[in-house]
Simulated assay, not measured.
Amino acid sequence: MQPHRGRRGLPAPVSIAFYHRLGRRGEVYMVMKSISAASRRTIRRQQLREIVPLADSTIFEMEQRGEFPQRFYLTSRCVVWDQSEVEQWLDARRAASRAKAVKLAPTPDVRLRRANPVTQ
């Protein structure tokens, strides 16, 4: 597999993340961890709407049931999703749909409706 290439054929940038670790005596050490920018891309709500054509309330309910990737907060007002998790979810839904494993909603019985019932 070829390494990911960014613009102009150069390798994709690698970001450095810092996190704290406690030593044996309780000292806090700053540890550097490199994360590939291509593998850790996040998307905001508007970008998610472009990828997944579901209502916000539907996405929220599916998150609560554990059927959709969980959102997380970058700041107190900025909510994002991990793009790779969303793409994996879409691939899984596509595979389930092709395998006929998705339960479809039942069609309504038009003879039972109050306004303009169909009579035969």
Rank of each mutant, 00 (worst) to 15 (best):
R98N: 13
M62N: 15
R65Q: 12
D82P: 00
Q120W: 10
A55M: 07
M62H: 14
S34C: 04
Q83P: 00
C78T: 15
E63V: 08
A55V: 04
L112F: 06
F72V: 01
V31Q: 07
V14C: 09
D109V: 09
R111M: 11
V86D: 02
A37W: 05
I59T: 08
A12W: 01
A17M: 08
S39Y: 07
W89P: 00
P13R: 06
P69A: 02
T107C: 05
F60V: 12
S97L: 15
P117G: 12
S84N: 11
L54P: 02
F60K: 14
D109P: 02
H20S: 14
A17V: 15
T75K: 13
R24T: 10
A101I: 00
A96T: 03
R8Y: 14
S15M: 12
H20P: 00
D56N: 14
L104P: 00
W81P: 03
S76I: 02
L48R: 01
R111H: 11
R111L: 06
I16D: 09
S36H: 04
K103M: 10
N116F: 09
G9I: 00
E87Y: 05
D91T: 06
R21A: 15
T42W: 03
T42A: 10
E63P: 07
K103H: 09
N116L: 14
E85R: 13
A101F: 02
P108G: 04
S36E: 08
L10F: 03
P117S: 09
W89T: 02
V79E: 06
G66C: 07
Q47Y: 02
P13T: 06
T107H: 03
M1C: 06
T75N: 07
